[in-house]
Amino acid sequence: MLRLWFLLLAGSALSEDVSASYGQNVSFRIGGYTEVEFSTSRQTLMFIKGKPLPADFQGRVSMEDEELRLRGVTFQHQGLYIAYNGEAEKPAATMNLTVTAQTGNLSLPHGVDLSLPLFTAEPVQVLFGSAESTTVLLNSSGLPGPGYEHRVSVQSGSLTLRSLTAADQGNYTVRDCSTNRTISTMSVSVTEEESTTAAGNIVVLIAIVSLLLVACLPLCLGCCLRLRRGNLIDTDQGLPQVNATENGNANSHSPTALQGPSSQTELETSHPAVETDILLPSAGEPSVGAGLEEVHSE
């Protein structure tokens, strides 16, 4: 700690203040230094290149390419980092790291599932706050809160809330149980129902089809009229032939054709007159009519 106070009083040209959100990666430029001292109000740790790291930093800290790299920082990584070579008390590179909560906004449609990152494998508590109240979605034991037993589950470092409704709109807070600090806050809004959206899409589709029909109707009518006019012209051109044929058939079956010659000359030519002798009674002979009258009178 004496070295720390000496360096702080001496000042450093490579000093910087860094603020990172929970879960982000941070790089600290240490140049050619091979040792880094990490100091907080509770502890002081040493990172020495080529030697094992403290337990809280296992798998999270590496020293390479003249950098100290921190992966997925948590509240345990907040503090002062001082790089030095261990041979001389001289100004060194320093980094004062502050870790803050993640914040964000999310808009989801009605009926889908909400996936909320927890950012840590350590015990956390998830709270839901709306305009009316605050409820527990996930308690410190990792169990769903009252009323969420069939909707909340935790898998692969994320909390899933199934089938969002309008009542699920509000702020979701992930809180670290060990420090009681907020890891993240997500503001979630729920949009209109999917069924309403689908109905709107159908209405739009019907409107587009109707416009296409209206646009194509004059063209279709014009094509129909041209086809009909062409058929009428073809019919008119074919009518004389049909009439001539019909007239020929009619003449072959007409009464005149069946009765024979139509003129008297043809009649006389085809049927010569038959001469008949008409006998007239003489003056002294009674006529047939007179004889009949006599019979009636008798």
Rank of each mutant, 00 (worst) to 15 (best):
T269F: 01
T40G: 04
C223F: 09
N139S: 07
E149Y: 07
S130R: 01
L14T: 14
D113A: 08
E298K: 13
R29F: 10
L239M: 06
S156F: 12
I208M: 11
R60K: 15
N243H: 08
A10V: 04
L127H: 02
I233G: 05
R42L: 14
T197S: 10
G86R: 02
K49T: 06
S195E: 15
G248L: 13
L211E: 07
G230Y: 11
M186D: 00
P240V: 00
T34K: 11
V174H: 01
P146I: 04
R162G: 11
A215V: 13
Q43P: 03
T276N: 12
L227I: 06
V295I: 15
T135E: 06
N180W: 11
E35S: 14
Q169L: 08
T120E: 00
I202W: 15
C216S: 13
P54V: 02
P286H: 08
L138F: 02
K51H: 10
S156T: 09
R228Q: 09
D56P: 09
M1K: 09
Q237P: 01
S21V: 00
L9F: 08
M186E: 03
T100I: 09
E16T: 02
L211Q: 07
T103S: 11
A101N: 03
A166E: 15
N105P: 03
T173E: 11
P117H: 03
V136N: 00
S270V: 03
Q43H: 15
D65Y: 13
Q43I: 15
L258G: 06
E16A: 09
R228E: 08
H77S: 07
V61W: 03
L14I: 10
Q78V: 07
A83T: 00
L225I: 10
G129R: 09
L225Y: 10
P144Y: 05
Y22G: 02
Q125D: 05
I30H: 01
T120K: 02
Y172E: 04
M1N: 10
G170M: 04
L14Q: 14
R162P: 03
R229G: 04
E266I: 01
A199D: 12
V61Y: 04
R181H: 10
V152G: 02
V242N: 04
T74P: 03
Q58N: 12
W5A: 13
N231A: 15
W5T: 13
F75M: 06
V204L: 11
N251H: 08
H110P: 03
C177E: 15
N249S: 07
T191A: 14
V274P: 01
L161I: 04
S156P: 05
T191H: 03
Y33R: 12
S210I: 06
G200M: 14
S263P: 01
E266K: 01
L8E: 05
L212V: 11
A215T: 09
G170K: 01
N96G: 06
K90W: 07
G32M: 07
Y172F: 12
R60I: 08
N243I: 10
L221S: 07
T135F: 01
V73Y: 00
M46L: 14
Q264D: 10
C177L: 13
P272S: 06
Q24L: 02
I183D: 00
E149W: 06
V154S: 02
S156K: 14
T276I: 14
P91M: 07
P272M: 02
